[in-house]
Design a protein around this nucleic acid. Structure first.
Length: 546
RNA sequence: GCCCCCGUAGCUCAGCUGGAUAGAGCGCCGGCCUUCUAAGCCGGAUGUCGGAGGUUCGAGUCCUCCCGGGGGCGCCA
């Protein structure tokens, strides 16, 4: 576990703590950030400004005292420290800090980028995609899949135990309509109103007929049809590098008696009542704006009923937190689900949601329409066939989950500099090329060398690149904590840009100066590992050649 | 009518939970390949951060209201 920036942050925190000395602990932790201008140093902190109110002193005076504390604490790592602006402390680090940082990161090996122990090391059960098994995954499914998977990967790297789960809605009205559509295809009838019109339904009908099923066997058609669809969805997801640990069945919630037990408990707790022939849960007692139906007046259970049981089941299994990745069209569902859990006496705060905004596939300035029932949509498989897994995942992940994605197929298809995913991959391939040129022996010598002892100055481009590389643990921690993989897309791009600048300014193979080639080879290797690690969290490949 | 998301450079979007002179990519203009991959680099232009109030040493960021765009508000899932 190697985190040079984390060590710096600790030093700042220690210096601040000793200054506080009994004064009340402030709210926010001091930030150690990248200053807006290079001449503001390598890092800056607002620690003094945060401390000033508690100490009853002026920020700049606190900053001056903090500065001398830091000079003591950091020793030769620090060139100098300046008080600036309203009370910022700007840290100017010595070349030695960069050399030691590089050596320590190099020693981290596979653990590169792993943050320090997480503040909340609980396990997280992420439920995502969970698209109905009544049709293929659409582009939107691809966004959910990439997001949930990458958040999971970031959480794992940050030290959490992650379980990926897909909830299969394999019973209920949608499946019945699906069955009726398959039956209609078998008998050559019109697909019913509210049915599924896609061509894939005809293929399914053919396949199921081959299994000996007829249009009259609706129950079997629905069950087998959903099984086949589910399996086909799984194949698409595997191709997309998304693997689920568990596939949970809605039907199983009923068959196992889990729903009945929960229903009895809700009644016992006095939150259930009958009205207008239906059975209701008094969710308004738990913050919902209206009560919700559990059992319809026709005797059928609602999706909601099974889903409460399912979420209770997940809470019991996970022991930690739950993250549900839902589409924007389900946001109204959030309060009602929390209310259902609260009615069971469970803590609704353990259930967290990421609400995904829409995806529009754009081609020639036109938005493709999306309707699963009418069979009009861009499937995830088609998207992958068209632009590849790497570009698809990058474009899906590039934007924050709460902003709409317009995926421009023409842009995504181009293998040129307009396409950000290639920009990042190119940097990785370029480094691989340098390392090949240097040869295995030279790289091994560089790894074994005493980097801290290398003489000469660290070039500005090297400093910038190494600083970027040092930020990986923090980026991973933030990505995990905020469930925001788009940060890593930006980080990967920035790292690639810093590398390209380094490439321009610093000759690696055959560099002059005692140990300089070793140091630069080490820097290249570190950068290569950093890009590869970042891309791996995004589920994107890091090619050796392009 | 109520709820959620968005509004930042010509376009697409970041902005690290309140900090310094608001950034990146694309596009546009001008340069750079006899040296490790030019899918690259360097330089240049572009902003009433949708609008109005408020909170404070400080607001793109927090609060209220308004305007505009998208999505939702079922005994569907």
């Amino acid at each position: 576990m190697s985190d040079p920036v984390g060590d710096l942050r600790s030093a700042v925190n220690d210096a601040a703590a000793s200054l506080r000395d009994g004064a009340e602990e402030g709210g926010a932790a001091p930030a150690l950030e990248r200053p807006p201008q290079p001449d503001f140093g390598d890092f800056s902190t607002n620690a003094a400004m945060l401390l000033a109110p508690a100490l009853g002193e002026k920020p700049r005076e606190v900053a001056a005292r903090l500065a001398s504390g830091l000079e003591g604490g950091l020793g030769e790592d620090l060139d100098r420290v300046e008080v600036a602006g309203p009370g910022f402390l700007n840290l100017f680090l010595a070349d030695g800090w960069y050399r030691r940082a590089a050596a320590s990161l190099l020693a981290a090996g596979d653990d590169l980028g792993r943050p320090r122990a997480p503040a909340d090391p609980d396990g997280v059960l992420i439920e995502f995609v969970s698209a109905n098994p009544t049709g293929p995954l659409t582009a939107a499914g691809g966004r959910h899949a990439a997001y949930g998977d990458s958040v999971g990967r970031a959480l794992e790297l940050a030290g959490h135990l992650v379980q990926r789960e897909y909830y299969v809605n394999d019973t209920g009205g949608q499946v019945e309509r699906f069955a009726a559509s398959i039956a209609a295809r078998m008998s050559g009838d019109e697909v019913p109103e509210d049915g599924y019109e896609g061509e894939y339904v005809a293929h399914l009908a053919q396949e199921l007929a081959g299994e000996g099923l007829g249009p009259g066997e609706l129950e079997q058609l629905g069950r087998r049809g959903a099984e086949l669809m589910r399996s086909s969805i799984e194949q698409t997801l595997l191709r997309y590098r998304v693997e689920f640990d568990t596939w949970s069945s809605e039907r199983e919630q009923y068959d196992s008696g889990s729903v009945d037990r929960m229903m009895a408990e809700l009644r016992e707790r006095g939150h259930v009542y009958e009205s207008e022939g239906a059975t209701w849960l008094r969710t308004t007692s738990f913050g919902d704006d209206k009560d919700r139906v559990l059992i319809r007046s026709d005797g059928e259970s609602t999706y909601y009923l099974g889903d409460i049981a399912y979420h209770r089941d997940k809470l019991e299994r996970s022991g930690g937190r739950l993250l549900d990745v839902l589409g924007a069209d389900h946001h109204g569902y959030v309060e009602r689900l929390r209310a259902g859990l609260a009615a069971l006496g469970l803590d609704p705060e353990r259930l967290e949601f990421s609400i995904m905004q829409l995806v529009h596939v754009v081609e020639g300035g036109e938005r493709a329409q999306m309707s699963k029932r009418r069979g009009e949509f861009v499937t995830l498989d088609e998207l992958i066939d068209d632009i590849g897994v790497d570009a698809t995942r990058f474009f899906m992940l590039q934007r924050s989950h709460d902003t709409t994605v317009d995926l421009d197929l023409e842009l995504a298809r181009t293998t040129s500099n307009e396409n950000p995913v290639y920009y990042v991959q190119y940097a990785h391939a370029r480094i691989a090329s340098i390392l090949r040129k240097a040869g295995d022996g030279a790289v091994e010598r560089a790894v074994a060398a005493d980097l801290a002892a290398v003489g000469g100055a660290v070039e500005p481009a090297e400093r910038a690149l190494l600083k970027r590389v040092c930020e990986l643990p923090e980026e991973v921690a933030e990505t995990a904590a905020r469930r925001a993989p788009h940060r890593l897309c930006a980080y990967a791009t920035a790292t690639a840009a810093d590398f390209h600048a380094f490439y321009r300014d610093c000759q690696v193979v055959g560099a002059e100066g005692e140990g300089v080639e070793d140091f630069r080879l080490a820097t290249c290797l570190l950068t290569k590992r950093t890009i590869a690690k970042t891309l791996s969290v995004l589920g994107i490949s890091a090619p050796e050649r392009m």
